[in-house]
Nucleic acid binder design. Structure first.
Lengths: 145, 145
DNA sequence: GATGTCTGGTCTACTATAGAGACCGCCTCT
DNA sequence: AGAGGCGGTCTCTATAGTAGACCAGACATC
């Protein structure tokens, strides 16, 4: 825990809102992989290569447009690779690049956390939602309404 | 690495696109903390409590609207707590809740990865961007165009 | 031989979300 | 009296995401 704090503290030194050319790596990377679909793609590709429509089936509620775009972005950043085979209907296979592989470790940490704390989060959410409408214990004294 | 794979594999069993009531915890949690600002907030709060405008200054390029909303969502999920002090101009302090604290560890892993691979990603990105327009070295021999 | 299906996408709407910035009441300082 | 800080909310607009039609080529089916 104090190690985590050390790491995070180091990046709080960065102006988390950077001026213009000064880029905080965390911001930069988070913007890329922190979107709605990227991690899901990487998780799907973690076990084995997938074809375009396999990925579409695996995730199902992503639109083809977003699937294409997410895959392109991931390829652009060197996290996955794209292989086209000149079969009868040309098939395309997506694989995890080494850079993408290296992301699995930290991602697994997050996944484990999500799994572990899922219940707590939902409990907190239910508690919070149950509270709205009734008088809140202490935060509503300003009477926002 | 094989441990990470094991963890991730377990969640690939989930239909990553869930039908309706079946929720994949990973999806659920990722949607919440995987947005543009949540992790930045948590990082800022990792070292010490912050007031509303302190957070605004720390991140600067978040709008007040999004700052309020992100903070509310984080509070709702029990990751941070909100404390109102009835001072002259009422001041509000945001703190990391224990649940939020527990997120620091996995987040630090991601931050370290981001820092480590930042360069590789940018190199890949530059390579990809430079390639578009010219003939691609190997993935284009199959003739995608 | 026309139809349907599979492939991996693109394109055009439509809509939800994020961002910019004005505004608010209250208080202090000048 | 006026300016400015506090913690927000509100409205308007720009941007991003979604749904779903469409495409070309080849195969199997009817």
């Amino acid at each position: 825990m104090s190690n985590a704090l050390r790491v995070i503290e180091r990046f709080s030194q960065y102006p988390l809102g950077e001026s213009q050319s000064v880029h905080c790596p965390v911001r930069d990377v988070l913007d890329r992989i922190g979107d709605k679909w990227s991690m899901l793609m990487i998780m799907a590709l973690a076990t084995r290569p997938h074809r375009f429509s396999e990925l579409h089936r695996a995730v199902h509620d992503i639109s083809k447009r977003m699937l294409t775009q997410t895959l392109r972005d991931l390829e652009r950043d060197g996290l996955i690779t794209r292989h086209v085979f000149p079969t009868k209907p040309p098939s395309v296979e997506y694989r995890l690049a080494p850079l993408g592989q290296s992301l699995l470790d930290p991602m697994a940490g997050l996944v484990e956390w999500a799994d572990r704390c899922y219940g707590d989060i939902h409990a907190a959410r239910a508690r919070f939602d149950g509270m709205s409408g009734e008088a809140k214990p202490e935060s509503a004294i300003q009477g926002v309404g």
